[in-house]
Design a protein around this nucleic acid. Structure first.
Lengths: 182, 182
DNA sequence: GAACTACGTTCGACAAAACGAACAAAAGGC
DNA sequence: GCCTTTTGTTCGTTTTGTCGAACGTAGTTC
């Protein structure tokens, strides 16, 4: 998918959603009609300022113009899901919902097996993780502030430092929400 | 914050993170050094294709170039938590983490008891809910697209329409992430 | 210390994006 | 039916982003 096409579709989609004419949008964005026309035709390579104006006029976050339209609903069974590669056999994660461009948030389902503990390197500054235990007992959190959780427990902690996931039983399942503040 | 500054910072940040020189990045992206230099100086207004090349060369998602860069811990036991008032006795929710001002995202843990089904009125436009089942069996989702979930299952659906939570067993526990776009 | 490499910046030339006017087509208004 | 308004597209002109070469600087090598 080339960027031009992506943007072309996004603008068309958002403009249709806002129910506004090309002419009106151009006027509100302070752009020439011709510019918009070519962009929607996929024959453009706009500058960021141009796109910025369009996003502002459409009242959508800037990065919305680069997103693929997603299906409305999404269902992942407990036994399904695309696994996320891990170098630890005792820790398998499933990415449930990828963070849209507009926000920074990923949802994982992870299975933690007893054995060697899983240590994660720090994520980018400002990253926070939320863990809710589905089954079993796990010790999670920053290495200096770990918490031992049972089914249903919730724990939030900074993930921009080294942190760990340790199963206290044969197999534990957790939900992990990883998000970065802007 | 003007787009130029935003991009300038983002490129600097990502390039530093990747530990690569301006010259090398330019070569890998197929761009002129001068172009990158001006962009990092905040004196540019690049086209999307230019940015696309940079993002690809940096190995980061395209939209990462538009995000602002950036913790205490919080633990709620399965038996704890501030309950959220509900007019239905068979549906008790606990607000695990309130949405910060920067984003719109609330995390709930909810207990659904068998009995009359719980119907929720539409949330503001663009609201999406994510549900992960901790225990039991529940039927959730828009009234026209419900899904019956078992332990560990994940379901995402638009919540700006009428939706429901129905326990298919005596008592089910779920995690619900409610988020609004923008 | 001269010669070499790698780094990032500045400059003129060119190609391309954005503009504005003129264009054809369709949708109301009377 | 005709006129008016609004729709989106096309074309020549102006503006500007991109390129490549030349530049100053810093760090290595012999």
């Amino acid at each position: 998918m080339t960027p031009s096409e992506l943007i072309a579709r996004a603008i068309q989609r958002e403009r249709q959603r806002a129910d506004i004419s090309l002419t009106a949008l151009a006027q509100q964005a302070g752009l020439a009609k011709s510019t918009l026309s070519q962009l929607e035709a996929g024959k453009g390579n706009p500058s960021v300022e141009t796109l910025w104006s369009i996003a502002a006029a459409l009242g959508v976050p800037f990065s919305h113009l680069f997103e693929m339209p997603e299906p409305e609903v999404k269902l992942i069974r407990a036994t399904e899901g695309v696994g996320v590669s891990s170098d630890h056999a005792d820790f398998s994660t499933t990415l449930l919902d990828k963070c849209p461009a507009a926000r920074r948030r990923d949802i994982y389902r992870a299975k933690v097996l007893r054995g060697e503990d899983r240590r994660a390197n720090p994520h980018p500054a400002g990253t926070v993780e939320h863990v809710i235990v589905i089954s079993g007992t796990v010790t999670v959190g920053p290495v200096d502030k770990p918490a031992t959780l049972n089914t249903g427990d919730y724990y939030r902690y900074p993930a921009d430092v080294a942190h760990q996931y340790v199963a206290e039983c044969a197999e534990a399942q957790i939900v992990c929400i990883m998000e970065s503040l802007e």
